[in-house]
């Protein structure tokens, strides 16, 4: 397949006796938003970190843009943008300075304002990360992941801990990044997020992928097995009520 940008085959990660990632196989097409879902400890982050070159690969193969990750980590690093689950940034530097600095690590001259505009933080260019709200921090993380104009950007639980307004706002940012030609791989706990955002999702549990398809297709398959909710389907959820009452506008700035 020529439009495959990421190819993962029989990926394995062991921590002592524990097999955290147990023969995971999937591929991601160019310009796709690909979701990895699963409960805590399912192996989502370990899978991502092996692809991102952060963890040694214990078995299997990962190819990104047809480059073998295990043997060509340095080349792969130039092609990817990464937002880690819990990474912070250097203190005492403002957002512009941080982006310039990250640019220099790739040997690139970047335009911090343009990057910040991408994630709607241009008015915070002179602020420090510690003074940002949760949603702003995540958006800044994404801006930092974009400095090298990556082919693929990896987002590890970018919306965890955010309020509904900030989450929806971040979805908008992610969709726009995709529309600019980038591929997005995202992990999340939120099913409605996966449904809204992802073209395809892989559901992981105990280190294995137990389902992989388009969200609507997975729902259809479940229903075709005769599943029905034991509560009457409502036309609105509590989140809809919350957003109706508090509005869609962002609160953190």
């Amino acid at each position: 397949m020529t439009d495959t940008i990421l190819e993962v085959r029989n990926l394995v990660k062991r921590y002592g006796d524990l097999v955290a990632v147990d023969g995971v196989t999937f591929s991601v097409a160019k310009q796709e938003i690909f979701g990895i879902l699963g409960p805590n400890g399912a192996g989502k982050t370990s899978t991502l970190e092996m692809i991102e070159t952060l963890r040694p690969i214990d078995g299997g193969e990962v190819r990104l843009n047809d480059i073998e990750v295990r043997t060509h980590a340095q080349e792969v690093k130039r092609l990817i943008g990464v937002q880690l689950q819990s990474s912070s940034f250097f203190d005492k530097l403002n957002l512009s300075e941080l982006l310039l600095l990250f640019g220099e690590m790739y040997g690139r001259q970047v335009d911090p304002l343009q990057l910040l505009k991408e994630v709607e933080l241009e008015d915070k260019a002179k602020a420090q990360v510690v003074h940002l709200s949760g949603g702003q921090k995540q958006r800044f993380s994404i801006a930092a992941a974009l400095v090298n104009e990556p082919l693929v950007i990896f987002l590890d639980e970018p919306t965890t801990g955010l309020d509904p307004q900030s989450r929806r706002h971040l979805w908008g940012v992610i969709k726009r990044i995709r529309s600019e030609g980038k591929t997005v791989v995202i992990t999340t706990h939120y099913m409605e997020e996966a449904e809204e955002l992802c073209d395809r999702v892989a559901i992981m549990d105990q280190g294995k992928i137990i389902a992989l398809d388009q969200p609507q297709e997975l729902v259809r398959q479940l229903l075709s097995r005769g599943f029905s909710k034991n509560r009457v389907e409502r036309l609105a959820s509590l989140e809809d009520v919350f957003l109706d009452l508090t509005g869609h506008s962002l609160r953190d700035e």
């Binding site: 991102e52 070159t53 952060l54 340095q74 690093k77 130039r78 990817i80 990464v82 880690l84 819990s86 990474s87 912070s88 940034f89 250097f90 990250f102 690590m105 790739y106 040997g107 930092a144 090298n148």
Partner: peptide, 13 residues
């Protein structure tokens, strides 16, 4: 501890 090093390792530095 703060994960800054990990963030640096995904760059080509």
């Amino acid at each position: 501890k703060r994960g800054i090093l990990r963030r640096l390792w995904v760059t080509p530095m």
